[in-house]
Structures are given as C-alpha cells and as structure tokens.
C-alpha cells in the first residue's frame, strides 16, 4: 500500500478516501490492495501455465518415446513436411508474440490507441498462423499423409501413377477376409508396402475374437515393426523431391513400418496447439473489445498481462514443435 502514490488513480472517484476499495473501483472485495490482486492473478496464471506445460509435456514425452523406439520413421516421414511453411509460421507466431508483449507495454502506460493496434496485430498473426496451417493440413490430407488407417488408403482416381494399383494389389493379397469390420469398410487398409507385408508374418496377433465386445482389427493393419530398416538415405532424397506428388508414400518400398505413427503424433500435437491458438484468438478478441472500451490503464491491466502470458506459452510450445517435426535431418 505504501507504494501507491496519489497520481496513480486515473478514475475520478467520488471518495478519494482512506479505503483502497473506493480508491480503486476494479479492486474485488476480498483483496486488500491492487498489488495483492495483481500478484494473485499473476500467480494463478503461472500455475495455470504449469498445467499447460504438463498437458503438452505428456505429448512431448510421448514424442520422445516414439522417436526413441523408431527413429527411422521420424527421419523418413519428416521429409513430407514443408519446412518453408513451418518456418514462416514460426516467424509469424514469434512476431505476434512480440506485438502481444508490446500490447502489455502500452497497457502499462495507458496508451489506448497503440494498445488496441498491437492487439489487432497479434490477432492478425494468429489468423495468419491458422491460414498457413490450413494449407498444410489440406495438402497432407489430400496426399493421405494422415493418422491411422487413412494413411494406407489407396489412390482412387486414375492419375497415371502405377503405385496406386500396386498398392491395391498388395491389399488384395494380404487382407484377411475373415475380419469384417463395420467401422472400417469405407477405409480399407493396406499393408504398409508390398514386400514386407506379404513376406514377414505379423509378430503378434490378437487371439481369435470370442467375446462380442471386442472389435475386430482393421483388415491388414500393419503389425508392430520390430525390423530395422537398411540404409535409405539415397532413396530419401528422391522421396523428398517427389513429396509433393500424391500418395507417393504408398509406392515407396523403403518406407519404414508404422510410418503412420509419425503423422498420428504430428496431427495430435499440432492439432492441440491449433486449438490453443483458436482459444487465444477468442481471448485476444475479448481483450481488444475491452481495450477499445478503455477498460485498461496503468492501474489496471491484469487481463492484458494474463492474456499475454497465455499467448506466449502458445508461442513457446510451437518453438519446440517446429524443430521436432520439421527439422529432422
């Protein structure tokens, strides 16, 4: 309380009295001073950020384990991601983080105009990030570079590429006719590649289905890969070149088993991050509305500060996601 000097309250309050609550109309009844209220909000936000870190941290742990289990998958599949787009997105997010920090700066100095402008720039950054992400996602989905059984979906239309037919033949050869699957019929699943799928027996199988409560496996689902891959560096270069072509992975005999897992974790992590970006956009929009109404000033800017912390953590997570997915040599 001693630190509060008289010029600080910009609100013309009827009672410039001795009581902090009449002096600071924003002060909630259960707090004694603006400093206590501000510190509580800050601590609460940091505790929340800690939960966010553990929330994503579990996914990072999952990533580390999957990569330790099958480094060849990550090395191979990373080349299907577009580093340029990822890099641009990183810069967009960093810049929007910077404008958010500037917004806090202007809020602390009661500069209404620059505050709204910086928040608007931050909002634009979030939109830009999502637009680029949208193009990346649609390209991946179009090329069947997706999670799960869809990864092995054959090419449906004749595009002159022989691979689709080869893969479909492999499917006919390896699919087990005894596993009807209501859920999966629209997603027929192929063996990962003709050579391995037909030659190596599955290393373990679920026991024959007895109980009706167990759903049968999708036909021809690739088993757990316990077989390491040989050197594929030469082939990777070709693949990287051809990565923009449709469904090229289906015809690639060098593709490691379980490559779909890379795209599973890729979509899980970037998707969760994208959801956070969308939440952040609502938040920034709400802050923009409040700032335009003149709610924030050097005495009271807690919402801008806390919203900023949230937006920075979104940026911070992407800073790790980018090298982990896009930059695998």
């Amino acid at each position: 309380m001693t630190a509060i000097d008289s010029h600080a309250h910009s609100h013309g309050d009827a009672d410039h009295g001795h009581h902090a609550h009449s002096e600071y109309p924003f002060l909630a009844h259960h707090f004694e001073s603006p400093a206590q209220q501000f510190d509580s909000g800050k601590l609460g936000m940091w505790v929340f950020l800690a939960t966010e870190i553990l929330f994503f941290g579990a996914l990072f742990a999952l990533y580390a384990i999957m990569r330790a289990e099958s480094p060849e998958v990550f090395k191979y599949a990373s080349h299907y991601l577009d580093t340029t787009m990822g890099g641009i997105n990183t810069c967009v997010l960093i810049l929007s983080s910077m404008t958010m920090a500037m917004a806090v700066h202007f809020a602390q100095r009661s500069k209404q105009g620059p505050l709204v402008f910086c928040l608007f720039l931050t909002f634009l950054g979030a939109c830009g990030f999502l637009v680029i992400k949208y193009f990346e996602y649609t390209h991946k989905i179009h090329a069947n570079l997706v999670w799960g059984p869809g990864f092995y979906k054959p090419v449906e239309h004749g595009d002159g590429h022989a691979g689709g037919h080869a893969a479909a033949d492999a499917h006919a050869a390896t699919a087990t006719p005894s596993s009807p699957n209501a859920v999966m019929t629209e997603h027929p699943v192929l063996g990962t590649n003709p050579g391995l799928a037909s030659n190596s027996p599955p290393l373990f199988k679920l026991p024959p289905v007895e109980s009706s409560t167990i759903k049968p496996l999708p036909a021809g689902t690739p088993g757990v890969s316990l077989v390491g891959e040989g050197d594929e560096t030469q082939h990777q270069a070709e693949v990287a070149e051809a990565a923009h072509e449709e469904k090229v992975h289906l015809t690639d005999p060098e593709m490691p088993l379980n490559t779909h897992r890379f795209f599973g974790i890729y979509f899980a992590m970037t998707g969760l991050h994208g959801i956070h970006v969308i939440i952040g956009m609502f938040l920034i929009g709400w802050l923009m509305y409040g700032a335009a109404k003149g709610r924030f000033n050097s005495n009271y800017y807690t919402p801008v500060d806390l919203g900023g912390l949230y937006w920075h953590i979104v940026d911070l997570i992407w800073i790790f996601l980018f090298p982990l997915f896009y930059l695998i040599h």
């Binding site: 920090a101 806090v104 005495n299």
Partner: peptide
C-alpha cells in the same frame, strides 16, 4: 516516467530486440 501501479514495464527496445533475436 509512466510506471504502472503494479508489475514491471519492459522497455520497447528490449521487446523489439528480443523479437528480432528470435527470428
């Protein structure tokens, strides 16, 4: 000389410098 009532004001130059460094 516009210190906020609570919290710490980071100078603009620091923010821009940090942003450029990150890029």
């Amino acid at each position: 000389g516009e210190q906020p009532l609570v919290g710490h004001l980071v100078p603009m130059s620091t923010l821009i410098g940090t942003g450029l460094g990150l890029i």
